[in-house]
Amino acid sequence: MTVQTKVILAVCYIILAPVVIGLLDGFDRKISARMQGRKGPSVLQPFYDLKKLFEKEALCANRAQLFLIRSYLMFIMLSGVLFFAGYDLLLVVFALSTSAVFLILAATSTHSPFSSQGTHRELAQIMACEPMELLVAVGFYLATVPRTFNVEFISKSFSPNIIYLPGFFIGFVFILTIKFRKSPFDISTSHHAHQEVVKGVTAEMVGREYALVTLAEWYESAVLYGIVGLFFMSRNPFSIVYAIIAILVVWFLEIVIDNTSARVKWQLMLKLAWGVTIIAAGMNLFLLEIIRSNIR
């Protein structure tokens, strides 16, 4: 890829990610409502919500909070730019983890009991998800020939990497439910309005601050869906179609899981996430090594 294409892809990500993810979110709410026998809001509802939040009065608990939230957004956007411009996958994962630190700092800066409780849950969630995210990067590294973390090379591999990495894919899709803040219901902050810890880490974020967090989550979702698509990318130009289909299937699967696992708690999440990571990704890693050493 030339530098120009990289810049165009990065700009496309910054402009299009919120539009696409916002729309997917709107359809998500519509489909969820239909599954529950309701009519549901307009598909543009997430955009109305975001716009309203920007128009509300600014009631900052302290000035540091807004700065920390902006840093959270910046780091997520950085990871997205690195990913879609085809740079290092490991760097993408690290930028995502760094962003989470800013969210936690923003939440703890207010000393509200709900935010603190949410922070503890957020840390548990990071413990549940982070191993899998890192393993996915390692999986791609081991599967591509020659070995590389470079997203551009990975997306142009000879055959789609899902062939070598089915276990990693299962594990990654599993943690997406947590990453998208859908299930368990007592997660650090849920995309559902009512939950056990009020709104957890976002409980004290008012108006614009909450809007920025929502926007950051949309940008993050775009990166995560991008990684889902990366499993299906190959030299074949049509592979992008398979990648999009895979992303839509995963998106629908998440809606189904969300609507059928309403009573899962975070303790189970931690156990399940690690269990699936160790079994699915661990086995896959083991087999991959055996296959590779035989080829050599």
Binding site: A33, G40, D49, H194, A203, Y210
Partner: peptide
């Protein structure tokens, strides 16, 4: 489902800071 206020964009939130 019978009355479904969410179709007006209403969300029943538990947080005063997010409420209108």
């Amino acid at each position: 489902p019978v009355y479904d206020v969410e179709r007006f964009g209403v969300i029943n939130t538990g947080n005063p800071m997010h409420a209108d």
